[in-house]
């Protein structure tokens, strides 16, 4: 019986991180938990956002940040490892189309992001009263955000020739974008200039929309966030597919 190579590639990509779950799932959950303990200890009682206690406000931000960072980490590290060790040929020799290739890597990233995000939520939700006001937004933004960062991970993994180039991509683009996006604060508490800057950061909309699902209130309208995030996803998808179609750095 013949099926498409896509399902196997997706399965293999999920298995790859699941086999080392202590590094790929448990470690990021622990990191998020530490952030929560430290920030909530320092700021709880001092800050209230949208009428929500600070710790409750912080939890969805940490969850979404974990989703995004781990989605990026999954596709990018898998690809760079395969390229550096050379075993990428196992995926390039079979009859797998560039579209299947893209979908498998991005979906596996989303799976990793959602698994870690769920882990963070389970580890943190009992620190503060959390509501699920409009749960559909939670799901929509988690999936789309994961796909966007998974896609960025594909780009970075293909572009980078060495691990330090990937680290640069991560440290100078992904980290600033996720940290300066309102994970730890509401951007309404920022000076006007930085508020303006934040509105140009697509990750802000992912986190804001995601948080809206919990509290039913947010800095921006969830529909605006959906539009921005959707546009980003569409753009990145087209860009990444084009890279893959041309065989950029994969098929010389």
């Amino acid at each position: 019986m013949r099926h498409s190579g896509f399902s196997t590639l997706l399965y293999k990509e999920v298995l790859r991180f699941w086999k080392v779950a202590s590094q790929t799932v448990a470690a990021p959950v622990l990191t998020a938990l530490l952030y929560l303990l430290i920030f909530s200890h320092v700021l709880e009682g001092h800050v209230k956002v949208h009428g929500v206690a600070y710790t409750a406000f912080l939890i969805p931000g940490l969850v979404m940040m974990s989703v995004l960072q781990n989605a990026f980490a999954n596709s990018s590290s898998s690809l760079i490892q395969s390229k550096v060790t050379g075993n990428i040929v196992f995926v390039l020799l079979p009859p797998i189309s560039y579209l299947e290739f893209f979908l498998a890597y991005v979906l596996a990233s989303v799976v990793r992001g959602v698994v870690v995000g769920t882990g963070v939520l389970l580890a943190t939700f009992w620190f503060a009263p959390l509501t699920f006001a409009e749960p559909w937004w939670i799901l929509v933004f988690a999936l789309m955000g994961g796909a966007i960062l998974g896609s960025l991970g594909v780009i970075a993994g293909i572009w980078a020739d060495k691990f330090d180039q990937l680290a640069a991509f991560q440290n100078f683009l992904i980290m600033p974008l996720t940290f300066l996006s309102g994970v730890f604060y509401s951007i309404n508490s920022l000076p006007p200039f930085w508020q303006q800057v934040s509105h140009w950061n697509p990750v802000f909309y992912m986190i804001d929309g995601f948080r809206h699902g919990f509290f039913g209130v947010s800095d921006a309208s969830p529909w605006l966030s959906l539009a921005v995030v959707g546009a980003c996803l569409a753009l990145l998808t087209v860009f990444t597919l084009n890279l893959l179609k041309r065989g950029y750095k994969l098929r010389a």
């Binding site: 013949r2 099926h3 190579g5 293999k12 298995l15 060790t85 050379g86 075993n87 020799l93 009859p95």
Partner: peptide, 29 residues
């Protein structure tokens, strides 16, 4: 194709590698 470079995927066993490679070609059984 048997590539010249000695490459392998360190995450998997021999059988897993072969099953996965079969799957890439759309063969499950």
């Amino acid at each position: 194709v048997v590539p010249q470079e000695l490459v392998f995927d360190p995450f998997f066993t021999v059988r897993e590698s072969l099953k996965i490679q079969s799957g890439y070609f759309g063969i499950s059984d």
